Each structure stands twice: as C-alpha cells, then as structure tokens.
Simulated assay, not measured.
Amino acid sequence: MANRNEQYLLPDLFEALQREQFAILSTVDADTGAPFINAISWFFAADEKTIRLAVDSRSRIIENINKNSLVSIAVFAADSTYSISGSARIAAARLEGVPLKVSMIEVGIKEVRDVMFYGSKMAAVPVYEKTYDLQAAEKLDRQVMTALKKGVSS
C-alpha cells in the first residue's frame, strides 16, 4: 500500500506543528547544487498550506533559498515521518521583537508525503536539549515563536 500523499497538512500533522520541535530542513546549496541539510526547531504551521521558520540571518540557508527556492522539511510527528516539500521565500530579513538577527522564511506547501516505511510507526520522536542558559533559551524561543506566529516582519 502506498503512503499517503497530500498537497496540504492533515489535521493531526497541522496540530503537531503548532509548537517548537525538531525537524530537518533541506535546501539546494547555492554553490554546489548538492542537497544542504540543517536541523531546525523554530518552525510552525501558519495554516495547512504554509510553514514559517526562523534561521540566523547569516545562515547559508538564506543564500541557498535566494538562489533556489525548492525546499523539503522532514518532520517526525503524528506517529510517522513526513516530507513536506514546497517553495520558500525570505518573508522577513529580520524578525521584530527578537534580539538576535533572525530571518523568517515562509514555505508554500506543494506536497506532504508520509515517508515512514511500510508496517511501522514512530514510537518516539527525536528529543533535544538546549545546552546554553536555559532561561535565556526559553525566552529566545518564546520571542521567535511569537514573531513567527504573528508573521511580523521588518
């Protein structure tokens, strides 16, 4: 049986993407044309057709998207693994209300594919820990996620 393939986020996946979590972002490297992969946590589903994410404004991701807007995001949620593909754009060079230079990227979803191998489900999702000042990390996370949810731009 083929895995599910949609052009939008299904309700369970949309709900899972309303909070910070681990994901893998793949862009096309601006110089080599090879896949370029980054771990991200500042992202959320603005609606069932749009993902917003934040990255450091100096990140290679920005240059990659400016040259080639095609991206994929691997997400581990709703008992499965999903590949969310689409076209990205730099929606804000700098997020307001965030003390660091952080850019907002919007991804227009073209495809959501359940890529979990046959006959299985995710028993646990990847878990990560912040390794710097936890209070500062929590404050920064709140600032970034609030800005992403508002779609605030400079």
Rank of each mutant, 00 (worst) to 15 (best):
I24H: 07
L25D: 03
L25Q: 03
S26T: 14
S26E: 15
S26A: 15
T27L: 08
T27V: 10
V28K: 10
D29V: 07
A30D: 11
T32N: 12
T32C: 12
T32H: 07
G33I: 10
P35Q: 06
P35Y: 09
F36M: 10
I37F: 12
I37N: 14
I37E: 05
N38F: 02
N38A: 14
N38G: 06
A39S: 14
A39N: 14
A39G: 11
I40C: 02
S41I: 09
W42G: 00
F43N: 00
F44P: 00
E48L: 08
E48A: 15
E48R: 15
E48P: 03
K49I: 04
T50M: 09
T50R: 10
T50A: 04
I51A: 03
I51W: 01
I51R: 01
I51G: 01
R52I: 02
R52M: 00
L53A: 06
L53N: 03
L53Q: 02
A54V: 04
V55G: 03
V55T: 14
D56L: 06
D56N: 15
S57F: 05
S57E: 09
R58Y: 08
R58P: 01
S59T: 09
R60H: 13
I61N: 00
I61E: 00
I61Q: 01
I61C: 01
I62W: 06
I62Q: 09
I62T: 05
I62N: 02
N64K: 05
N64E: 08
N64M: 07
N66Y: 08
K67F: 10
K67L: 10
N68S: 15
N68Q: 13
S69Q: 14
S69H: 13
S69E: 13
S69I: 05
L70W: 07
V71R: 00
V71L: 06
V71S: 02
V71C: 06
S72M: 07
S72T: 14
I73M: 07
I73C: 01
I73P: 00
I73L: 08
A74V: 13
V75I: 13
V75T: 08
V75K: 00
V75M: 02
V75A: 06
F76D: 08
A77D: 10
A78P: 06
D79W: 05
S80T: 06
S80A: 15
Y82N: 07
Y82K: 05
S83D: 13
S83I: 11
I84Y: 04
S85W: 04
G86M: 03
G86P: 03
S87H: 14
S87K: 14
S87E: 12
A88N: 01
R89Y: 05
R89I: 05
R89L: 06
I90N: 05
I90M: 04
A91G: 04
A92T: 05
A92K: 03
R94L: 09
R94V: 08
R94A: 11
L95F: 05
L95H: 03
G97L: 06
P99S: 12
P99R: 12
P99D: 13
K101L: 11
K101S: 14
V102Q: 03
V102K: 00
V102C: 01
S103I: 03
M104I: 03
M104E: 04
E106H: 06
E106W: 00
E106I: 01
V107R: 00
V107T: 01
G108M: 11
G108S: 15
G108C: 08
I109F: 09
K110Y: 04
E111R: 13
E111K: 15
V112E: 08
V112C: 11
V112A: 13
V112R: 01
R113V: 09
R113M: 12
D114R: 13
D114G: 04
